[in-house]
Amino acid sequence: METESVALLISALSILLAALSIGWQIAQYLLSAGRPKATLLHGLVSHSEALSGPVTANGKGLDVRRLREQALGGFEAVGIQVTNHGRAPVIIESVKLRPRGGVMTLIPISERIGPDLPHKLEPGANASWFLGYDHAVRLAEASREVLKENVSGVYMTAQLGTGNTIKTRRTLRA
């Protein structure tokens, strides 16, 4: 092999190694922060337990009527579960109920069920907050009637300590 070919090969390998190194550094930076994800929940909540599940893609929650037939008590609720998939803790400052397709916001203060806010969510942990389903119905109706908005249902958001807001992707029909 000629010296020019060897030099070109060494240069190409150096560039490849540098690109891999910078890619690794970017990945480490992105993965070192908290990465919260939000899931919209629906179900029954009592003073001692919550029987809930994620809202489906078509906007349906759990069949509360069937749960009540099984002698399960509590009130119908909508909630948000925040899971921290990152490597650093995340601070949850507040949770809000919002209409999909509208601008109104319901900020629960006294009737919210869940950990006190602000809440520190450790890596790999999750926490849930619930509100009565009647709040969701009233918010959707108020958005439709008062503001004449085309509201398809409700979703929830969580305000983080960084100022960012995460929201649930799914919408509960209300």
Rank of each mutant, 00 (worst) to 15 (best):
L106V: 12
R65W: 11
I113F: 14
P89Q: 10
A88F: 11
N126R: 13
E93W: 07
P118L: 02
T83N: 04
G59Q: 03
K148M: 10
L139H: 04
V103H: 14
R112N: 01
I113V: 15
E122S: 02
I80Q: 01
G124I: 07
E149I: 11
D134R: 07
R112G: 00
L131I: 15
K148L: 14
S110G: 01
V146L: 09
G79W: 11
G153A: 05
V78L: 13
V137D: 09
R98I: 12
A77N: 03
K120S: 14
D63H: 11
V137L: 12
S128K: 07
R100W: 13
I113N: 00
P108F: 04
E141Q: 04
T157Y: 00
V154D: 06
R100D: 11
L62M: 15
G79Y: 07
Y133P: 06
E111F: 10
G73L: 12
I91D: 11
T56I: 05
G102I: 04
P115I: 12
A77T: 05
I113D: 05
L131C: 15
S143H: 03
V82C: 02
G74R: 08
R66G: 00
L72Q: 06
L147G: 01
V137H: 04
V95I: 15
M156R: 03
M156V: 09
I92H: 03
Q159C: 04
I107G: 04
T105C: 12
E141K: 00
L147I: 07
V90F: 02
M156L: 07
L67P: 14
V103G: 12
G132K: 02
S94Q: 03
T56C: 09
L131S: 01
M156C: 08
Q70M: 07
L131H: 02
T105Y: 06
I109F: 13
F75A: 08
R66T: 06
G101L: 05
T56F: 05
E111T: 02
S152T: 14
V154L: 10
T83P: 05
H85G: 00
V154Q: 12
P54D: 07
K148W: 09
V146E: 06
A57P: 11
S143L: 04
L121M: 13
G74C: 09
P54S: 10
A140N: 03
R112Y: 09
R65N: 10
S152P: 09
E76Q: 10
G74T: 04
T157L: 01
W129N: 00
E141V: 06
H119A: 03
A77V: 12
S152L: 06
P108D: 00
V82W: 11
D134G: 10
A136L: 11
S94D: 03
A88W: 11
G61A: 06
R65T: 13
G102H: 02
G53S: 10
N126M: 14
P89I: 13
